[in-house]
Nucleic acid binder design. Structure first.
Length: 247
DNA sequence: AATCTCTTCAACCGCCTCCGG
DNA sequence: TCCGGAGGCGGTTGAAGAGAT
């Protein structure tokens, strides 16, 4: 394990250490964390330096109580993403993943236990029924793509398929019976943010997200594991697209 | 005032993925 | 293709402070 050297300091950071780290980052910038301890003259491991900077020293970090809208956003994002603290924190300006995680574990998880009764002992917040947790693979998949059944897609008539194509590009994922929808990538929102905005419920399922302006050139292009990696675990469709697949 | 219990949150640990050689 | 190092993440721990007795 890193940091197992006897000479590497652990525990709470001193003001002097903070100052050294701050000056180092100001001089050399963020990144290259393996070089930071030497550059800063610190007896800390690279991970400790990174964590201290990201969770405490970095400018614009917001401290103190979470506002009601922040809490609401955390709950909704956790419903969608599960314990993806860094993703959730990314949508809360000034908040760190550690802050969000701590807040969840100390405030919201406790509230959840109260709601469900002490004997239920939920390990994590339980989403409302029929809400599927999204587990994105952003480093592998297009940030806006998701999986659908090609059977459902191909069994629809041409009109419906054309309608679907206005919103999504459908590409094969080998011969496993599934394909990927690639919604419009032209705006800067994360794909799951669309899902939050257009949340609907149909037949007991939450159906979410929308997209426009699909690039027709990517329609029906071959898709394979090499290019796009493995599948997402869950799928959300917006109501319009759902109706195309389920007339 | 002293002691105990609970809560908070900074920091650590171990694992995973990516990337370059 | 394999391997090792670096970056990053989520789960967990434990010290410190707050509150209760």
């Amino acid at each position: 394990m890193e940091g197992s050297s006897l000479r590497v300091r652990k525990g709470a950071w001193t003001e002097e250490e903070d100052l050294l780290l701050k000056k180092c980052i100001e001089k050399y910038g963020e990144g290259k964390w393996h070089q930071v301890p030497a550059r800063a003259g610190l007896n800390r491991c690279r991970k400790s330096c990174r964590l201290r900077w990201l969770n405490y020293l970095k400018p614009n970090i917001k401290r103190g109580h979470f506002a009601a809208d922040e809490v609401d956003l955390i709950i909704r994002l956790h419903n969608l993403l599960g314990n993806r603290w860094s993703l959730i924190a990314g949508r809360l300006p000034g908040r760190t993943a550690n802050d969000v995680k701590n807040y969840w574990n100390t405030h919201l998880l406790k509230k959840n236990i109260d709601t469900f009764g002490k004997n239920s002992k939920p390990k994590s917040y339980q989403p409302k029924p029929n809400t599927k947790i999204i587990k994105p693979r952003p480093h592998i998949l297009s940030k806006h793509s998701f999986l659908i059944s090609l059977d459902e897609y191909n069994n629809n008539n041409n009109t419906n398929r054309a309608e679907a194509s206005k919103n999504m590009a459908i590409v094969n994922d080998g011969d496993n019976g599934y394909g990927y929808c690639f919604p419009n990538d032209h705006n800067e929102m994360m794909w799951w943010e669309n899902m939050m905005i257009n949340e609907k419920e149909v037949d007991g399922y939450q159906l979410q997200c929308s997209a426009n302006d699909i690039d027709q050139s990517v329609l029906d292009q071959p898709m394979n594991e090499e290019n796009y990696g493995s599948t997402m675990d869950e799928v959300f469709l917006d109501e319009e697209l759902w109706n195309v697949f389920n007339p």
